[in-house]
Amino acid sequence: LVRPKRPLGPYDTSEAITPWAQATTYNNFYEFGTDKGDPARMAASLKPRPWTVRIDGEVKKPQTVDIDTLQGWFPLEDRVYRMRCVEGWSMVMPWLGFPLAALIRRLEPTGKAKYVQFTSLYDPKQFPGQRGNVLDWPYVEGLRLDEALHPLTFMAVGLDGRVLPGQNGAPLRLVVPWKYGFKNIKSIVRITLAEKQPQTTWALAASDEYGFYANVNPAVPHPRWSQATERRIGELGRRATLPFNGYADQVAGLYKGMDLRRNF
């Protein structure tokens, strides 16, 4: 495992990084199948190059851009983030990528832009899980513009200094570390700046269980299980889940005055 030693940045956690073997074999990526092992087993069917990303909606420069061109616009940075799945497990992931804010600023949103919508690839040939209708395909996700512009919000193109593996969302995925993992949409082909709040796949599937915000919140249980604790992958016991997944100091201000029980 080759990792350049570097001092921790202001956004990094110093917690032990989840080993590569576990971070790349225990994944929720229903496009490959619903079993946690399916993404790693089926990842070879995804072709992350050539790949284009369409950028449209409320931007001054709508365009379709090649992934290598897009990631070449920004210096790539490492970010060691906690990742908390809504199912009650967590990992520490060494992402490689660039802040979403840098991309959005480059696109010059119009005054009407209030939200960002993301769309995953729809191609049942590359994503065998899309041959069934477990979810409405393609997978869509969204953020409020201020969430999208937050310096923690990240677009990952790599993991642990390497190109992002297919099972982890190659070639381009969203990482919002204070939200449940399902917000982190993978294999993105389209980014749309929007005036209205976009629909999101899991809210469409079960609106009483998965909301638009999906901020990690130990005080708001999932209807079927508690969110008070989590298992860090690699550990046997459970640990307490922290509000906003431990990023409350940085992001709680985004939700000032909001009822987080209703906006779950």
Partner: peptide, 10 residues
């Protein structure tokens, strides 16, 4: 033997 994967209890 650790063959239960990343989340053995689950």
């Amino acid at each position: 033997t650790g063959a239960l994967g990343a989340n053995p209890i689950q």
